[in-house]
């Protein structure tokens, strides 16, 4: 019996302690609610990331097709560029230029004469060009220009397309008699409109 009171005596002392310890309990209830919100946010976040990942992946794949298309385009254009550059190099080779110049009736003049502006002195001895050299093609061969037509041979196709200068309309009668070799856009002073005159070429 003695034990009971002995036990019961401290009990009231302990009780307030327990009460103090239990006091935070309502807070624990409050804590549980935010955890759910966090979970929702986390899950939503994961979902968002997954969706974003998916969208990115789709975009990248889509991009890959686009890149592929552009790469194919680029390769095609590079081939075209090479082809055009080859044509350009071919027609600007000295053999082709010389053959064209001669076909157009041009001759080299080996005696240069200079006019000195400071005193008007004529340096060198003027002499008429004799037009000695001919047929250059076989002398310095170029396998790349075999079969490329000279400008004089292209003349017939090109003449109708030109005609930017009003003077050309009157010129053909005069120049045409001189033969195919001479282009019929003969000297016509370009109209001066305040800018530098540039030759109308085709």
């Amino acid at each position: 019996m003695s034990a009971v009171p002995a036990q019961s005596i401290p009990a009231p002392e302990r009780a307030p302690d327990r009460l103090r310890w239990l006091r935070p309990a309502p807070e624990a209830v409050r804590r549980a609610r935010p955890r759910l919100a966090y979970a929702i946010i986390a899950v939503a976040g994961v979902a968002a990331i997954v969706v974003a990942q998916l969208l990115l992946s789709i975009a990248v794949t889509q991009g890959a097709y686009e890149v592929d298309k552009y790469q194919i385009d680029q390769a095609k254009l590079a081939r075209q560029e090479q082809q055009l550059r080859e044509d350009l190099d071919r027609v600007q080779s000295p053999q082709y230029l010389a053959a064209n110049a001669e076909a157009l009736g041009m001759v080299p003049n080996a005696s240069p004469v200079y006019l000195r502006l400071s005193d008007g002195a004529v340096l060198g001895e003027p002499a008429a060009a004799d037009g000695a050299p001919g047929a250059t093609a076989p002398l310095v061969p170029n396998a790349l220009i075999d079969g490329v037509p000279l400008v004089t041979e292209q003349q017939t196709e090109k003449t109708p397309t030109q005609g930017q200068s009003p003077a050309q309309g009157k010129a053909p009668g005069a120049a045409g008699n001189a033969g195919e070799a001479i282009p019929d856009h003969a000297p016509a002073p370009p109209p001066v409109d305040g800018t530098l005159p540039t030759p109308a070429t085709h």
């Binding site: 080859e86 190099d89 600007q92 061969p141 170029n142 790349l144």
Partner: peptide, 8 residues
């Protein structure tokens, strides 16, 4: 290889 100027 290509040699645009031929024999030059």
């Amino acid at each position: 290889r290509r040699y645009p100027n031929g024999a030059v």
